[in-house]
Simulated scan of single mutants.
Amino acid sequence: MAKRRIMETGVWNVASVFPGGLLRGADGYVHNLQVRLLHALTTYQRAMTEPVQPHLPEAIDEE
């Protein structure tokens, strides 16, 4: 898994840093869009599976 991830990161890096790599439709642009969508999906899935912890104000001691 680690070797594959390193290879994918290398491909992303090369595609992104070459001149024109981030122009709309270029390989770097597409790779960055895929990464952003993957991160958004994992954030969404995590938010949907973890219980919500409501923020409640501290109780006021009324002595």
Rank of each mutant, 00 (worst) to 15 (best):
M1S: 13
M1K: 12
M1T: 13
A2H: 07
R4I: 13
R5T: 00
R5F: 09
R5Y: 01
I6L: 12
M7H: 13
E8N: 15
G10I: 08
G10D: 05
V11I: 15
W12E: 09
N13P: 04
N13H: 15
V14D: 00
V14H: 01
A15D: 14
S16V: 00
V17H: 09
V17R: 06
F18C: 14
F18N: 02
F18R: 15
F18S: 08
F18P: 05
P19V: 01
P19C: 02
G20I: 05
G21R: 12
G21Q: 06
L23I: 13
G25A: 06
G25K: 00
D27I: 00
D27P: 15
D27Y: 09
G28N: 01
Y29K: 10
Y29H: 15
V30P: 04
H31P: 05
H31F: 13
L33E: 02
L33K: 10
L33V: 11
Q34P: 02
Q34K: 15
V35N: 04
R36G: 00
L38Y: 05
L38M: 09
L38D: 09
H39K: 15
A40W: 08
L41Q: 07
T42H: 02
T43C: 07
T43K: 08
Y44R: 00
Q45T: 07
Q45D: 14
R46H: 07
R46L: 10
A47D: 05
P51I: 07
P51R: 10
P51Q: 06
V52T: 08
V52L: 11
Q53E: 06
Q53A: 01
P54G: 06
H55D: 02
P57W: 04
P57R: 01
A59W: 01
I60M: 02
D61P: 01
E62Q: 08
E63V: 08
E63H: 11
